[in-house]
Design a protein around this nucleic acid. Structure first.
Lengths: 159, 159
DNA sequence: CAGAATCCCAATTGATACTG
DNA sequence: CAGTATCAATTGGGATTCTG
């Protein structure tokens, strides 16, 4: 997915018309069936579909990076903000990687970073509404994981 | 996420007890709220939580690989099986990469591969129930994507 | 405490060419 | 048609070291 750098997403951004948002506000939290999802998708123009597809890929690219969901899960299941060191100690993740991940999530508008001018310095992160509207999908994945377990994710390509 | 090879998942697999499945069958398709997800999570023992967490990571690692969701989306929005060449032409993906992706998804039990002994050879792929129970989450992501759009996924670390 | 800088290896992907 | 083999280029992430 080339998770990275050369995405000049902002430049390509396109406004998705209201056609798709006829019901006043957010349908988020709705567990769309496959059929409903198809209907929704088919209500989009090809360009819009491509846009949405791209955005979903970007999202999953973000979530696919090391520990990204783990980080977000911490926020999903904690209430209140979390500090860098809390995440670091509860997650078993290299500091620089955590740092990068937090910045990515913050840049993506999923976390907000609050810096306090104290000694020792304190920085807190908190999920945005945007992130919270993502959490139900996480819930779905968790339930799915409990029910199914992945079969053989060992990517042994030994046929 | 080191999406790969050294996952010896099968060896570590643990059976998740029925504690978590008191409601007879599948809760899949349920759009769990953040709070509900937390309740669900807290009903698990630490080891179970870890297991589920790991499975979710594996899943997202799988989905995070290049074009994986794109491939699955094709199945989600098509009815009936798809052929290698169909995917190849509609997806703009290198043949070898598509090949690997399809094998991974198949190994993960999300797709089934049917080979027909004909000339020219024909191979068809079809999503399993396991995959279909994943699709609602995709639907959620799509809706989310339409509603929000990702802010700045350009991973420019130029602060 | 909360990171940034640097180094470096492992893993991923696409291009190209070939095959049952 | 449905792949595989090989190669090259890029990236991603951890370890280590340093800093405001």
């Amino acid at each position: 997915m080339s998770k990275g750098s050369n995405n000049k997403v902002k430049a390509v951004r396109v406004v998705v018309p209201d056609v798709t948002r006829n019901e006043e506000s957010s349908r988020l939290g709705s567990g769309l069936s496959a059929g409903e999802a198809r209907d929704l998708r088919e209500s989009l123009s090809p360009e819009q579909r491509q846009q949405v597809e791209t955005t979903v890929e970007e999202l999953l690219s973000l979530l696919g990076s090391a520990h990204a969901i783990a980080v977000l899960s911490e926020f999903a299941f904690a209430d209140g903000p979390l500090r860098f060191s809390e995440l670091e100690s509860s997650l078993d993740i290299a500091a620089n990687t955590l740092s990068v991940r937090l910045r990515e999530l913050t840049n993506a508008g999923l976390l907000v970073r609050e810096e306090y001018n104290e000694v020792p310095p304190r920085v807190e992160y908190e999920p945005t509404a945007k992130a919270e509207q993502l959490f139900p999908a996480f819930g779905h994945f968790h339930v799915w994981a409990i029910d199914h377990e992945l079969d053989g994710v060992d990517t042994d390509l030994s046929r």
